[in-house]
Design a protein around this nucleic acid. Sequence first.
DNA 1: TAGCCGTGTCACTTGCTGGTGACAGGAGGA
DNA 2: TCCTCCTGTCACCAGCAAGTGACACGGCTA
Lengths: 211, 211
Amino acid sequence: MARDSQKTKQKILASVGRLLARQSFGSLGINAVAREAGIDKVLIYRYFGGMPELLRAFAEQGDFWPSSEDLLDPADEAPTSLAEAGAALLTGHLRELRKRPITQEIMRWELIERNELTDELARYREQQGIEILKRLDLETAPTEKTDLPAAAALIHAGITYLILRAKTADVYLGVDLTTDEGWLRLAKAVQKLSTLMLENAPLSTQESTDD
Amino acid sequence: MARDSQKTKQKILASVGRLLARQSFGSLGINAVAREAGIDKVLIYRYFGGMPELLRAFAEQGDFWPSSEDLLDPADEAPTSLAEAGAALLTGHLRELRKRPITQEIMRWELIERNELTDELARYREQQGIEILKRLDLETAPTEKTDLPAAAALIHAGITYLILRAKTADVYLGVDLTTDEGWLRLAKAVQKLSTLMLENAPLSTQESTDD
DNA sequence: TAGCCGTGTCACTTGCTGGTGACAGGAGGA
DNA sequence: TCCTCCTGTCACCAGCAAGTGACACGGCTA
């Protein structure tokens, strides 16, 4: 019909996104994508090569991973203390991931399947996370008293899990995952935990004393 | 061959467990189970009715969910403070879930699919968790200062996510998920976070003052 | 005008899945 | 002895998936 390969490619990629937003990776196949896009599946093979290459192209064209600016930039004023900055980043993670159903679906997929693409996506995120830790000066070796990277990993992972879980569960340990009130409770708890852990931490700022 | 329906049923259920331990729920089907068990699939229909009923039978015959005794009972002495008890329960969750690959697989499944069985399993766990919170006297309404159930949910979820993630990732925010050292770091961080949050909490023990 | 290439359509094979009907053969009771 | 029920085997169906080969159409250039 359209006779425009660029538009067709875009239609195909958009269909992948639509399918992912609606269902899970499990039900994502060549036929399903072709049906959703309203084109013949042979075009998917022609333009992308196959499913893995299509997924790679899809991963490269979308902005699925919040940048560190996304994590911080809302109406809040700039954080003035380490504790504030850490809390802001983690609540930013909560806010941004909750907005991105496709990102969530990719992360669910990563829990199930391991392949070249999932590894690459995870490596990218890992690197981004480490850099943020570095910028906060938290990537210090675990001290006797507090292992800040491990604590941050725990809270970060907790946020992630609760968001992923919210698709198939309504409540977690009594916290309502279906209402904004529940998520506000969680955001406040994130803030509280972050500040507790960072205020009581042996800060390794400029004048760190190696006790 | 064997002509013993009880044994055949056991073979079938055992095959479900073996398949789950090896692969994921996605690749679990009638044909796969029959192949693994070395029997004809028609027997699965005859003895169980179909896949949903087989899964239900499987869920009922195994001890996939650590009891609250499992969570506490190791060599540790009994916790004497609220903070110690909370920390012990959460690290117990870490230790016990890590030991149970099939339980992990079920929880991965719950992230993807929602049906009668997953709902029921989640409800069971939710109830168990709430009771533990009650026993700790933490199920107080969220106070101005600290929302203990929400904080507990976060840490609990964080532990869960990291364990599930460890099947397909090696590292999370710099923490190694493949070695016992990494998990020790996480366990210590859990302990630290729990005690921080519970020591600073407005305790609602017997003589709670409603400030 | 003739031919080529890019785009899209159609038809087909292969291989898997879930599900079912028909049958074989042994154990035990009437 | 015959009959019946329980257990297990075999053969088959329909449906859907991935992947491929052949062809139709239209625009562009020589």
